[in-house]
Computed example of a mutant assay.
Amino acid sequence: MAGHTASEVHRQAAELSGGARGIVGPLKGYHHETYALPLPEENLLSARYARGKLRAPRPGVLWFDRRCFTSEDRLLMALQGRIDRIPETVEVAENVFLQGFIEGRTLARWQLPGRSLAAGHVLQLRRLFRELVTIKVDELKDVPRTCETHGQRPACDDDSTAFLSRLIDFTGQRVYDDNAEQYGTLFEELGVRREALAGLGDSATLLTSRPFTLIHGDLHRHNFIVDTAGALWTIDWELAMIGDPLYELATHLHLMRYSPREEARIAELWAQEVEAARPGSSASWQQDLPRLLAYKRTQSVFTDVIRTAEALGPRTDPNWRALPRAAWKIRRALAAARDPLELKSVPTLRQVVSAYTRWFRLPGDQSAPPRA
């Protein structure tokens, strides 16, 4: 499906559903063009789902995260019966996959950041943590791997130091270096220096190794669906990888924006669950978690600076009205990563707006940016 245009994907959805009526989409998503479609009675999923979900990679998008698997769908098929409450997936034609569509609301719509999770959702999250660490590396050997690591397959050696080092290298090379010609001046004006990654690399040498396992890699509120019965489902496994299980916790805590008290509670519950399921999975977690969180916060800044510029539109005609809110998010990310980025001070909102304004404005551009 790679390289298909939105209209081609829509036609595929219409063909699978027996007509274009009732198709919803494209749904929100950065990496994929996604449609929800009614399922005809003869479809393999129709006994359990009212609708299916068809996804195709968006051509030309930048990937800011290191990946391990070429196909989210094939991974989901391998995880059926091993991970509870994930979409059932079937191959309806050669390399064309249909996922069951989970009816409900995202956890983001169910509950605002900063609020404690409902007791039932905490129990389901604990089960997910436990299930993930029981998936061993060799159990996924038949799921095709990707080479999103500069030509080298992801190592599966239970070496947490090497794992974090590979992540840092990916951010430096694929996110910063590959985009420096276009975005380098913007990074510089915001005080974001590539050299900050070197400090993270020094910190990585202190990590304790933990047995590698499957990592979802993107457990945030928009990737949890609360169904009509209140159960929590986990979707969007496109960033899944093999690696240090503590990275799952670090990513989850960073993305969920829990209150400090809730963050501490979830971290303790994670440690209890993974250690009981697979001894050694939580080794030295209290010492190593801050180091992994420092990487996640730094990675987010490198990623968000570019994504924000992309989201604001073409350089010749950016969406100036959206800039103040986008700048607020960038400033929040910079504040969270102040220490690992070695920032003497966090840019003000006005300074962030000014940095993007100068980057967007080309010679002869007469469009007027807003006042900060």
Rank of each mutant, 00 (worst) to 15 (best):
D159Y: 11
Q351E: 15
I135G: 06
V61H: 04
A47T: 11
L75Q: 14
T348Y: 01
Q286P: 01
H10S: 10
A118Y: 04
V301Q: 04
T5D: 14
V9I: 11
Y49E: 02
R257L: 05
A108S: 09
L207E: 03
H254Q: 13
L293S: 01
W328L: 10
W359V: 00
G191S: 10
L349V: 00
I235G: 06
K344A: 15
P59E: 13
P59C: 10
M256R: 03
V352Y: 00
R109D: 12
R67A: 09
L293R: 06
T234K: 03
D365T: 00
A335T: 04
A264V: 07
A108W: 09
S300A: 12
Q182W: 09
P154C: 13
E33L: 10
D244C: 08
Y247D: 07
H32G: 08
D365W: 00
L79T: 02
L44Q: 14
L207D: 07
F129N: 10
S165C: 13
L249A: 12
I135K: 09
L107T: 02
W63Q: 06
E238P: 08
T303Q: 05
E262F: 01
E131G: 10
R338Q: 15
P290E: 11
R265Y: 08
A355V: 00
E273V: 03
I83R: 04
V175Y: 06
H150Y: 12
G184R: 04
E238D: 15
A372I: 00
A6H: 12
H216G: 05
R221Q: 13
R278F: 07
T106D: 09
K344L: 14
V175G: 02
T228L: 15
G18R: 08
